[in-house]
Simulated scan of single mutants.
Amino acid sequence: MDAQLKEDRFQIHYYFNDDSHSMDALVRNRCEIEIISILMEIANILDVSLKVESEARLEGGLRDIWKFTNANAGILSVIVGVASIAIPLLPKSDSELERLQKEDLRLSIQERKLRIKTLKQQVSLDKVEPESIEKMAEIVNENYKVITQRSNLFKHLSEYSKITTIGINGLNSSGIPSSPESLIPRSAFKKFVLPSHKLPPQTFDDATIEIISPVLGQGRYKWKGIWQGQNINFAMGDKCFKQDVLNQKMSFQSGSVIRCILSVNSKLDHTGEIVITEYSVTTVLSFGVDKTRQGKIHRHQTELEKAQFNLFENV
């Protein structure tokens, strides 16, 4: 990579519906927070310590520029290049969070580590390939924090009617654009905004929960237990098991354990962190060493489904 072409500055260019060169300070500040958060998260993915400095604004409507320091020139250029691709990239679907959970399974942790390792090796040899930047942008665009912060950014922009378009690109140390601006018109702003921060439920088909505090009476009270080393409060959604408890068919003591199907609901907070909103047991498969009626039915259905799958697989 030519040293003169290396980018160490990131620019966002606000285009207005008039000839002014100013914008609401609060809106600008909110946008800046989200942009810097995205840049810092890209650095975090690359395991790089990054310092961001704000440079003087340029007119024409209004341009904000951030200078990066505290890392070698090659990695700074990578961060700018990745951000320039990732931020303008439209979500692939309205249900972006559901899509991401499915793609999370396809792009393994090992594959992500390999892509980052390859990119860093290219940086050390000063031979960064455009394809490696694009592959890194794919990783960034599957990051919940980046998706959320980008959504926040375009939500702020869509609520400020003065802005008609934004342009995004990188600059070199002399302030010269290293590539044309990626222009995003106002009509596309809302396409970047997540319609919901709710994540699709996750189901664990063979969860083991140690019961700390069962609910022995009527009411919509939460049970307390330990799952995967964590204390959780969960709703008991298995009506048959609840009725057996109310009829005193179940005797709980210290160390009592249920094996069950556990549903975990979660959402993203305003920074993109995953927050668990509810745990719910849908079916109790066994209590201690004894299988429940529901557990036997579930096992029978599972075996039938497997047999049916094997039958069609051999056709």
Results as ranks from 00 to 15, higher is better:
residue 106 R to E: 14
residue 292 T to Q: 04
residue 191 K to R: 13
residue 269 D to E: 05
residue 177 P to T: 05
residue 92 K to A: 04
residue 315 V to E: 15
residue 264 V to E: 10
residue 104 D to G: 12
residue 114 L to N: 11
residue 89 L to K: 15
residue 165 T to P: 04
residue 173 S to M: 14
residue 57 R to C: 14
residue 288 G to F: 10
residue 294 Q to L: 02
residue 87 I to E: 05
residue 217 G to I: 04
residue 25 A to R: 13
residue 62 L to C: 08
residue 95 S to I: 09
residue 275 V to T: 05
residue 275 V to Y: 00
residue 66 W to Y: 11
residue 124 S to C: 05
residue 184 I to A: 02
residue 69 T to Q: 10
residue 196 S to W: 00
residue 41 E to M: 08
residue 248 Q to N: 07
residue 91 P to R: 04
residue 15 Y to D: 11
residue 232 I to S: 02
residue 247 N to G: 01
residue 182 S to T: 10
residue 212 I to H: 00
residue 222 K to P: 08
residue 233 N to I: 00
residue 242 K to S: 11
residue 94 D to Y: 15
residue 168 I to R: 01
residue 161 S to Q: 14
residue 118 T to D: 14
residue 50 L to M: 00
residue 312 F to K: 15
residue 253 Q to A: 12
residue 181 E to N: 14
residue 60 G to W: 06
residue 291 K to W: 09
residue 284 V to L: 05
residue 42 I to R: 01
residue 200 P to V: 01
residue 303 E to T: 03
residue 71 A to Y: 04
residue 209 I to R: 05
residue 52 V to W: 14
residue 313 E to C: 08
residue 88 P to G: 06
residue 152 N to S: 07
residue 17 N to Y: 05
residue 53 E to I: 12
residue 234 F to Y: 03
residue 203 T to F: 12
residue 42 I to Y: 03
residue 254 S to F: 08
residue 13 H to Q: 10
residue 47 D to A: 14
residue 52 V to T: 01
residue 11 Q to N: 08
residue 191 K to L: 13
residue 13 H to D: 09
residue 307 A to D: 13
residue 251 S to Y: 13
residue 287 F to N: 02
residue 14 Y to S: 06
residue 153 L to D: 10
residue 216 L to S: 00
residue 163 I to Q: 01
residue 85 I to N: 05
residue 65 I to N: 01
residue 147 I to P: 08
residue 91 P to S: 01
residue 159 E to Y: 00
residue 303 E to P: 03
residue 55 E to C: 14
residue 211 I to V: 13
residue 127 K to A: 14
residue 107 L to M: 07
residue 102 K to H: 15
residue 21 H to A: 09
residue 188 A to K: 07
residue 81 G to Q: 06
residue 17 N to Q: 06
residue 270 H to Q: 13
residue 201 P to F: 00
residue 47 D to I: 07
residue 72 N to C: 00
residue 312 F to L: 15
residue 249 K to V: 07
residue 222 K to M: 10
residue 145 K to Y: 02
residue 115 R to L: 13
residue 74 G to E: 15
residue 136 M to C: 10
residue 33 I to G: 00
residue 159 E to H: 00
residue 119 L to D: 11
residue 207 A to I: 00
residue 43 A to N: 07
residue 166 I to V: 06
residue 203 T to Q: 14
residue 211 I to Q: 08
residue 186 R to Q: 05
residue 24 D to Y: 11
residue 19 D to H: 12
residue 149 Q to M: 02
residue 261 I to N: 08
residue 228 Q to D: 15
residue 109 I to R: 12
residue 91 P to M: 01
residue 43 A to D: 10
residue 94 D to H: 15
residue 306 K to H: 13
residue 182 S to D: 12
residue 120 K to D: 06
residue 302 T to M: 13
residue 32 E to S: 09
residue 75 I to Y: 02
residue 13 H to G: 03
residue 180 P to C: 09
residue 312 F to T: 10
residue 59 E to S: 15
residue 307 A to F: 15
residue 139 I to S: 06
residue 245 V to Q: 00
residue 39 L to D: 02
residue 229 G to K: 02
residue 190 K to Y: 06
residue 210 E to S: 06
residue 259 R to C: 02
residue 115 R to I: 12
residue 10 F to C: 03
residue 239 K to F: 09
residue 264 V to W: 00
residue 154 F to V: 05
residue 252 F to R: 08
residue 288 G to R: 12
residue 52 V to I: 11
